[in-house]
């Protein structure tokens, strides 16, 4: 494949090495095995799966963004005439697509293991929530990757951020002292209420407990997110493909009006 945009370039690069791809998928599946094969309470099972998605997606985004920055590729990209918005959109979307593979397999395995009450609406809702969670984790991971100056710092900041995210998403329980009334509890509860990772955890809990009910707002937002990510990915994929016709870059630069972004 000859990549015509950053979205295709990043995806082609991510899947160019078969060993790396297998390791990425294998690590997620291995981590998920205990939660799928060993009998345990539904809440623990859902929490474990959410934690694996949080951990692998966040670290994946943070480490790959740190590499992109440290080895100078991000600087090189900033010199291209492509719009910054388009570059960042491509970086985020391609990162989400990369994580979608491993997270999707883990989530799919969880759904299969709890397939007694699965409906199309539940599947749509879970896919949408996974997309929103992955976008959030990608953004946070990229932010962490931007702060870090070395691979060691990425892992240090990543460990701290993952722990904090796990607590704010209800994946890890908050300390008992903060669970009563108080500013910290109210603050964390407010974040959890609007946190897509917490929504995903709740949706997985519902599935494991056999409930088919989905809050209307959650379903609407997750369908919207799923649609946006799918349409965005398809458009960017098509935009980076082979295009017929040609024009010389210099011809559109030296003119009497500002040239169009490509």
């Amino acid at each position: 494949m000859l990549p015509g945009n950053l979205f295709r370039l990043q995806l082609a690069s991510a899947f160019s090495d078969r060993r790396q791809t297998l390791l990425r998928l294998g690590a997620s599946i291995l981590l998920a095995f205990p939660f799928l094969l060993i009998r345990m309470p539904a809440r623990v099972q859902a929490t474990g799966i959410t934690m694996i998605i949080l951990f692998t997606s966040f670290f994946g985004a943070a480490v790959s963004h740190a590499h992109l920055r440290i080895d100078g590729r991000l600087t090189r990209l900033s010199l291209l005439p492509t719009s910054r918005w388009v570059l960042w959109l491509d970086l985020i979307l391609s990162s989400v697509m990369m994580r979608l593979g491993s997270s999707g397999i883990v989530l799919g395995a969880f759904v299969v293991a709890n397939s007694g009450h699965v409906t199309a609406a539940i599947l749509l809702n879970l896919a949408g929530l996974l997309c929103v969670a992955l976008v959030l984790l990608t953004l946070l991971g990229m932010g962490t990757g931007r702060l870090a100056r070395s691979n060691a710092e990425v892992h240090l900041f990543g460990a701290l951020a993952t722990g904090m995210l796990a607590m704010l998403s209800g994946v890890a329980p908050l300390p008992v002292e903060t669970q009563g009334p108080g500013a910290l509890h109210a603050w964390s509860a407010a974040i959890t209420a609007w946190n897509p990772i917490a929504w995903l955890l709740t949706a997985l809990n519902r599935l494991a407990l056999g409930s088919t009910a989905i809050p209307r707002l959650e379903f609407t937002l997750s369908c919207l997110a799923l649609g946006t990510v799918v349409v965005g990915a398809v458009l960017r994929w098509r935009s980076g493909g082979m295009q017929k016709g040609s024009f010389n870059a210099r011809d559109i630069v030296i003119g009497d009006r500002a040239p169009m972004e490509v």
Partner: peptide
């Protein structure tokens, strides 16, 4: 600043195309 997993042609293709060079 290169994408190591990709070929030289893929790397070059991406960069040249960003400057508006297309097709043949």
């Amino acid at each position: 600043a290169l994408w190591d997993g990709l070929s030289g042609r893929q790397n070059l293709w991406y960069f040249v195309r960003q400057y508006g060079v297309r097709g043949s």
